[in-house]
Every structure is written in structure tokens, then in C-alpha cells.
Amino acid sequence: MKKFKISAFLLIVMLSISILSGCSQNNEKVLNVYNWGDYIDESVLKGFEDEYGIKVNYDTYATNEDMYIKIKSGGSSYDVIFPSDYMIERMIKENLLQKIDLNNIPNYELIDEQFKNLDYDPNNEYSVPYMWGTVGILYNKTMVDEPVDSWDILWDEKYSGQILMLDSQRDSIGVALKKLGFSLNTRDVNELEQAKQALIEQKPLVLAYVGDEVKDKMIGEEAALAVVWSGDAVACKRENPNLEYVIPKEGSNLWFDAMAIPASAQNKEAAEMFINYLCDTGIAYKNTDYIGYSTPHTKAKEMLDEELLNDIAAYPQPEDISNCEIFYDLGEFITEYDRVWTEIMAQ
């Protein structure tokens, strides 16, 4: 009898919990946002919650690959993600994204035409541009005397223990490929092996392979040279005027991050509202100002300082990026990049 009572009690507890949690789900709309770390002015999230009465769950990732694996393996239901060019291409191919109804995003017209219909999403059905930029070398002028204009300086033994590389396989392998004069999108195993050898050679000189910490390290003058994304360079230069950014002459990576809605999204309507909200001029300006990356938003760009507009890190001129390439999805060949990167890191 006692046993029966206990089970009955447990049953009641479980039922009431499930009913209560059911309630809260019905009453409160939730939007799950999955973004790069440190890639939004977080007060914007609060602003969206207040304006639309939708609760925002905000998670972050460090690399495209992190995000991809999490979406691909299922189990998570994000409504808005911020993949880069090649990852958008791959996710479209694998049916991981759903089409965005641009009619629900009136602010889309404020996005500069040159960022629309790019190769990774030719008809702009799946993505709305968020930020763009380059990859380059951020260096400390007090610690590096010579002019920096080539990737070769990252292999210079003079700077042993003062070099920070990105813990991101396509970016770091890309640096080696460009240094050797190959394409960032090579599908030639031989070229890839040469890049691998170069990175293994470089490894003793490297202080650390980092992610977002690179900003703190460079601002705190922990290292002399670092491979960074351009927006991080802008943010660092603001904090430490000794820092300078350069796009090496061999060329580099030109990239675009866009907002997209995964096929598994639960709340497409709110996702589109959120994307539209981020394309609002005031909000886009706020984000651009906060994170330092280059905005594809025409009106937000007009609001920026003259100084920033002339900064090669933020808004490079066409001749600065003439050698730059955009990453393409490599399909199955990406497993070769995985293998090479694992082998470099395991050395």
C-alpha cells in the first residue's frame, strides 16, 4: 500500500510538472539564436525582446565547423544562425537551411547590392548578409620593426614564441596555401601536403592556436603577430593604438557572414522578425560600431566615422583585396582538410 502511495505521489508530481512546463511554452514565445562569440551588441537582444515580446535564447560558437556539427547532428533547434559563405553553400547543398521569405524582411532593401546574390547563395534565397571582412595579420608596431606585407613573416624565426595562429582549420591552412601561392580552395592533395609541411615547420614558432582570446592577447601585448579576422583587428586597434592590420600581398580570404534559418527551426516567423530587426538601420549601426566588422548595410555604413571608413581593416579598397579569394565549399574533399589539420595539431 505504501509503495502504491509513493508511486501515486510521484505520478502526480510528474504530471503537474509536465502541465506547468506545457503552460510556460504556450504563453511565451522563444527564439533560439546561435551566433559567433562576441559577434553582436548584446543589448540588441534585450531590445528585440522588449519590442516583440519574444524571449531570446542566445548561444555562441567559435568556428563554422562547431556550428555545422551541432546543426547537422540534430537535437538542437536553433532558429537563426550566422554561417559564413562556404558553410552556407554546404548547408544549402545538404538541405540544412530553409528559404527565407524576403517579403517578411522589408529592411533587406537596405543591404548593399554588391553583397547580394553572391556565389554561395546565387538567388539570395537562404541568407541575408550580416557582416563581411578579410583575414590578415595584426601586428604590434613596437615589437615588429620591419614592414609587414607578407605571410612569410609568420615563418620568421626572429618572432619565435610571439606568433598567434587561429585554431580554425580552413583559415590556418588557407594562410599556408596563400603563402605558397596556391588557391585557398585547392583540391590538390599535393598542394595540401605542402601547406601541411609548412604549418608543421611553423609550429615551434607559434605561441598558441587561439580563438576569440586573440583579441585580449594582442591588446595585452602578449604576442607580436597574429592572424585575425579584420573586425577583430578594428576592435583591437581601438583599445591599443600600437596595433596595425595588414592584408598580405599574396592575398588572403575575403569572407561574408550571413543570417540564415536552419531547416530544423521551430519558429520561422520570429526568426524572420529577428533578421529584419538586425537589418534595421539603427540596430545595424549599433552592432557594427560594437563589433568592428564591416557592414553590408548601406545606411549604417553612412553613419560611421570618416576615420573608420578609411581604415583598410574595416573597409579595404578594391586594390587591397584584388588577390583575395572567397572560400568555396569543398564537398567531400573537406575530409582531407580535416585530416591534415588533425595531423598538424597532433604533431
Binding site: I69, S73, V206, A208, T342, M345
Partner: peptide, 19 residues
């Protein structure tokens, strides 16, 4: 600093990065 890959990192990398 990610330079000294240990077995835990190897496993993590397979699951989170390479898939």
C-alpha cells in the same frame, strides 16, 4: 595554447570539428 594536443583534444576534435 592548443599546441600540445592530448588524447582528450583528439577525441573532442573528432566529435565537434571533423564530425
Amino acid at each position: 595554447g592548443g599546441q600540445f594536443m592530448l588524447i582528450g583534444n583528439l577525441i573532442e576534435r573528432q566529435f565537434l570539428l571533423s564530425g
